[in-house]
Simulated assay, not measured.
Amino acid sequence: MSIILAAVPLLSTAAQGGSTREPCWRLAWEENFDCAQIDSTVWSKCTRGNPDWQNTQSSDPRLFEISDGTLKLRGIVNDDTTKDPAPYLTGGIWTKDKKSFNPGRFEIRARLHGAKGAWPAIWLLPFDHENNKWPMGGEIDIMERLNNNHGAYQTVHSHYTYDLGRTANPQSTGIYPINREEFNVYGVEIHPDKVVFFINGKPTLTYPKINDGADGQFPFYIPQYLLIDMQLGGQWVGEVDSKDLPVEMEIDWVRYYEPAQ
């Protein structure tokens, strides 16, 4: 895919509480899902694992479709538990071990179809995952939506928030309104001293670095890989209603910006 460069303004100074200078971002990479197949040089299908988000991930082709310029990731009832014991099957993609993103700005335009027990997510993990084990390397959740809620969660996780339980000062998570039936743009900016989330271009949560990142409070300023996945069920979202299935999330595009020189 060719690289398209463009300049876009940083979030407003008032939103960030910074100086009056407004630097720009440069569009360094984008994925528009305009080919018949997922670009295997960038993306892989998420593999099955033990965590709730991963315990129904599958490579079943019914879970993946590119059409009309969007990628559809689905959650379905498993119709053959003799081959796979999972009650449901879900699709996800990630750039793990393939494409690394330096700290910058990420935007993903997506539409989320609701169902009881649906848990779509867009998130970042350390590219060097072998030397940045969870939660020490941190996790940035650009978007998580439960069921058919009117809001999306945006969250950071780390040793500081998870192991030490320090989630309130500074605030590490929040739920923010979305246009439930429409496409929304979910975004995050990773700065040396803060992580700034936004939805549809409006700032939501800012998570600052404090005390020079002591106690593993701010591990986020490192290269990341991107995950986009549909999931069903789990301790957080609760039980699935199979009558609501299949369910899908649609991804229109992904854009990654780096600071303009």
Rank of each mutant, 00 (worst) to 15 (best):
62 R>Q: 10
70 T>H: 05
62 R>W: 06
16 Q>W: 03
69 G>T: 05
119 W>Y: 11
26 R>D: 07
128 D>R: 05
127 F>L: 02
39 D>K: 06
55 N>D: 13
11 L>S: 06
96 K>T: 11
90 T>L: 08
15 A>N: 07
33 F>A: 04
87 P>W: 12
98 K>S: 01
57 Q>N: 10
87 P>M: 15
104 G>A: 03
45 K>M: 13
113 H>A: 08
44 S>I: 09
56 T>N: 12
79 D>W: 02
81 T>D: 10
8 V>E: 12
108 I>M: 08
51 P>G: 08
121 A>L: 08
2 S>T: 07
115 A>Q: 03
100 S>K: 04
61 P>A: 07
49 G>P: 10
135 P>L: 02
114 G>Q: 07
70 T>F: 02
63 L>G: 02
74 R>C: 03
105 R>K: 15
47 T>S: 13
134 W>Q: 10
13 T>E: 03
106 F>H: 00
88 Y>P: 02
70 T>C: 15
71 L>M: 06
78 N>V: 08
11 L>T: 03
43 W>L: 01
10 L>E: 13
92 G>H: 01
37 Q>P: 05
133 K>I: 09
138 G>Y: 02
46 C>E: 12
124 L>K: 00
43 W>D: 03
19 S>N: 07
101 F>D: 00
119 W>F: 10
67 S>L: 05
98 K>L: 14
36 A>R: 13
119 W>H: 14
72 K>P: 00
49 G>D: 15
